[in-house]
C-alpha cells in the first residue's frame, strides 16, 4: 500500500506492506539509519522517534499507522545551520554517550520530556527514561546532560 508522511519536515511516500514497521520504513525505504533497532519487545527505545510530536517506539508501530503523520527522527534534530541543538550539545558537553547506539533514542526521548516538562528534576528524568536502555554510560552523564540541556546548573553533580 502507498503511504505518505512528513519526515523531518519533508514530504515522503513509499510502497509498504501491512507488516512494514515504521522503523523499517525509516531505515530501509528512506535510508534514515539513525533510528536504531535494539530489541524486539519495545523495551530498549533505540528506535524512539516523534510521531505528531509524541515519543513513539518506531519498531512497535506499523508504518501504515503513520500514514499522514508528522514524523521526527534524529536526523532532523540539529539546528538549521547543521550545528547541534541544545540537547545534542549537552550530550556532547557532558559525555552523555559512548557507543552511540542508544543515543538517537535518548536524544529523541529527552526532547519529548523537555517539551512537556521544561525543567525536570533528576528523579523525573530517570523515571521518564524508563523506556530507554543504555548499556555504556550507567546513565550518569545522560541524566546530567538532560538537566544541563534544560538550563539547570549541573556543576555540583559529581565528576565530569
Amino acid at each position: 500500500m502507498k503511504i505518505t508522511m512528513t519526515v523531518n519536515g519533508k514530504a515522503v511516500s513509499g510502497d509498504v506492506e501491512g507488516r512494514t514497521l515504521l522503523s523499517g520504513f525509516l531505515r530501509e525505504h528512506l535510508s534514515l539509519t539513525g533510528t536504531h533497532v535494539g530489541c524486539d519487545t519495545a523495551q530498549c527505545g533505540a528506535c524512539l522517534v516523534h510521531v505528531n510530536g509524541e515519543a513513539v517506539k518506531s519498531c512497535n508501530m506499523l508504518a501504515a499507522e503513520a500514514d499522514g503523520a508528522d514524523v521526527g527522527t534524529i536526523e532532523g534534530q540539529a539546528n538549521a545551520d547543521g550545528s547541534l541543538n541544545a540537547i545534542q550539545q549537552a550530550f556532547q558537553d557532558h559525555h552523555g554517550l559512548q557507543c552511540g547506539f542508544c543515543t538517537p533514542g535518548m536524544v529523541m526521548s529527552a526532547a519529548a520530556l523537555l517539551k512537556e516538562n521544561p525543567r525536570p528534576t533528576e528523579a523525573e528524568i530517570r523515571k521518564y527514561l524508563e523506556g530507554n536502555l543504555c548499556r555504556c554510560t550507567g546513565y550518569h552523564n545522560i541524566v546530567k546532560a538532560i538537566m544541563a540541556a534544560s538550563g539547570q546548573d549541573v556543576s555540583s553533580i559529581a565528576a565530569e
Binding site: A42, G45, V51, A55, V56, K57, S109, Y128, G131, N132
Partner: peptide, 9 residues
C-alpha cells in the same frame, strides 16, 4: 503502564 513512548501508543 510501560514507559512514556508505550503510553503514547
Amino acid at each position: 503502564i510501560g514507559d512514556p513512548a508505550v503510553r503514547n501508543r
